[in-house]
Each structure stands twice: as C-alpha cells, then as structure tokens.
Design a protein around this nucleic acid. Structure first.
Lengths: 205, 205
DNA sequence: CACCTTACTATACGTTTGTTCAACAAGGTC
DNA sequence: GACCTTGTTGAACAAACGTATAGTAAGGTG
C-alpha cells in the first residue's frame, strides 16, 4: 500500500560494472569464440542493457581490449607472484595448473589469438604483455642455467618454451579428448630435461 | 553491328567454381580472420554473385567445411608425398618450409582453429585430418627410434612434437616480428636433438 | 539453329549487428 | 525530503548479415 517499489535496476560503480561486462565477454568467448562476442550476447549474459558497453568502454572494441588485458593478468600474476620470477621447475608447474588449462580458458585464448593476428590495436597490447611473459620465462631459464653451469641462449629458449607450452595448450584446446594438463606437463618436461637437467618442483636452490 | 555481345558472366564447371570460392574463402580468413569470412566478402573476392555459395555448398557452413579440408590437404600431401612417411629429419624440414609458414597461412590456421574449438561439425573433420597428421609424425618417429635403438613412446612424442611445431607457428603468427621459419626450425631441432640424436636432412638410412 | 541443362545473377526478405541518444532513476549529499 | 550526479535503460537507426528464389543466359548437344 505504501509507495515502496522494487528498484528497476541496480546501480554499480563504474569499475564494478566494467568488470562484470569483461567477465561476460570472457564467458562469451569461451562459449562461442569471437563470433559470439556480440553486444547482445555479452549484455544478456551480464544482465545489463545494450547501451552499457558503449558507456563504459566506448564501444565493442574497447571492451575487447579490456577483455584481452583481463585474460593476461592472472597468468602474469601466477608466473611472478611477488614480482620476482619463480624457479624454472615451479614456473612450468604453474603454467600447467588446472585452471589455466581449463577448456574454457583455452577457448578464450584461441579466440583472442585469432583477433590479435588481425587487429592492430590488440597486437600492440599483446606485444606489451607477451614481452613481460617472455621476460619472466627467460629470467627463470637464465637462473636455472647459471646455477647448473649450462651455456644456453636463454632468450631463444624462452621463446621456444613458450611456443611449446602454447602449442600443447592448443592441441588440448582444439580437441580436448586424449590429452590433459598432466600429460601436457609431462610432455613438456620430457622435452626439456634432456637439455636442462631435472626440473623438479623443489629445485629452488 | 552484328548481334555479338560480350557474355555477362563466365560459366565454370561446378568443381572449378567451388575451388574458386574456397580460395576466396581462404583469402578472407587470411586477411581478417573468421570475422571477415562473410558471404559478401567471399563473393566479392571471387568475383561471383552472392547466391553462388548457397548453390555450390548449400550455405556458408558448407563452404567453411570445404575451406577447412582445403587448408589441410597441402600439408598432408607435403608430409607423405607418395603415401609413405618421410624420414624424421626431412619431415621436420618440410613442416617448416617457407610456404606453410607464410603469415597468410598462419592466420588462416588460427582462424580455423578458433572455429574448430567451438564448432562440432568442424571438429569432426579436424579429428579425422589430425589423426592422419599425427599418425604420419608418429611413424616417422618410430622409424627413427628403431634405427637408432632408442626406446621412446613414439605416440606421446608425436603429440608433443606437433604441439611444439604448432606453438612455434602460433608465436610467429601472432606477432611475425623477431621470429621466422628458420629460427623456428632451429628451435625445434635444438629441443629434439638432445632426445633423439642428430636430425639431419640426409639421415635417411 | 533450336533446345536443354544448369551455372549463375540479382533482388527481396527477415534477422542481427554496433552505435547513438534522449529520457529515466538509483543512491549519495546537503 | 529536495537535489544532483551519473549509471542505466530502451528505442531508433542504418548497415551488414545469411538465405531463399524467380528469372536469366552460357555453352554443350542434337
């Protein structure tokens, strides 16, 4: 009887709403690839109206850039938790952990890669993040080789190792059957250990 | 003055026209990824009218399936020219030849992979072709190991090697700078030789 | 030259795309 | 409780999407 009415929508802070849209965008990529990354899909999933993406990101492209950043961030955070790179064995284990190897995550990356290869704006963002990624791996390899007295071009090997890991990701992603995170990790170590010596989790010192 | 008029269009055989459309489709994928794979784009590039894709392939999906097959065929043909698999060293060289590593070809694959991960029909086609691909590599590894008396799980290693090669492709594709086919081949061999012994082109016997 | 098969064109159609924008209202501030 | 900032909505819009289809004509066959 009173004038109290249920609010027609909830008002979030700009950052909160932005993150909700980014999460919805990631979910769309995971479900249907870049083709499913549409204003309608994303806003439906985020339970928001169609105008919001333009309001918070200036348009679809702005959201895609934010989505790309959001996809990279957890990986970088995992690889150097305190800013300091991990020992190589630990680093590899982190790269093959269950979450980053989830089918959803892999499909997201595949969709993003396809766009990076074709979209100059995304490529700029990629170059920056990939540089950090590669640098982290290179430092870990360098430290590993220094301790063991191995003379190896850490820069070139870093690129190769990243390629190997991403390639194993890729196979697993394209057809998830017959290959899982544990197999991928074993395969990776099997290829690296003849070159680098044993890569145990506890090889810190 | 005679009745002779220039023909309004050229009539091709069904197979010829189909191949023209497939080629145009590949070109679209190479240029703009899966987003650019549209009826308008493809037909404009093939200099054909918009109805032709439906006529020859039943629709866009039919063309995409044909494009996928067309992308796989030259690779399989390269890897076992006469039906017989090549020696491992030669096989790896073939995998890193200039043409298959062209930026266009890499972008095509990236676009197709993104779809395979999400499209059940394409996945079925992928599973079949990938099986042939993997089998070829496995046989080459098996033969290599047999000759050298190495005891290695050729099946698992085949998957790993394919992952490595595709991963190196991937890096090169996403950002073509600072990495070329020759570097990729060197990186691949550098990782495999500690495990498998020297992989020379002329290691046939 | 007449005929016939079928590759082909071109239009129309309904749907979905991304963007724009005026109006609305949620929720903190006074 | 009045006010104001601004996050939010929903409709309107043109462009682009894929498909269906009726009609056209190229080019081989007799």
């Amino acid at each position: 009887m009173t004038t109290s009415e249920a609010p027609k929508f909830r008002r979030y802070s700009a950052e909160d709403r932005a993150q909700m849209l980014v999460q919805a965008g990631l979910a769309c990529l995971a479900t249907g690839g870049i083709t499913a990354f549409t204003i309608d899909n994303i806003c439906r999933r985020a339970e928001a109206s169609r105008g919001l993406i333009a309001h918070h990101f200036g348009g679809k492209d702005g959201l895609l850039a934010a989505v790309y950043e959001a996809a990279y961030q957890p990986m970088l955070a995992t690889l150097r938790p305190g800013g300091e790179p991990l020992p190589l064995g630990v680093l590899l284990d982190a790269m093959f952990d269950a979450e980053s190897h989830s089918p959803e995550n892999l499909r997201i990356w595949l969709a993003l890669w396809g766009e990076v290869a074709v979209n100059p704006d995304l490529r700029a963002a990629h170059r920056r993040n990939y540089g950090l990624y590669r640098n982290t791996v290179e430092l870990a390899i360098e430290a590993h080789c220094f301790v063991r007295g191995l003379r190896i071009d850490a820069g070139a090997l870093a690129t190769t190792v990243i390629g190997l890991i991403d390639g194993l990701w890729l196979e697993q992603c394209i057809d998830p059957e017959g290959f899982d995170a544990a197999s991928a990790r074993a395969a990776c170590k099997g290829l690296l250990e003849p070159l680098l010596g044993p890569l145990e989790v506890g090889d810190g010192a």
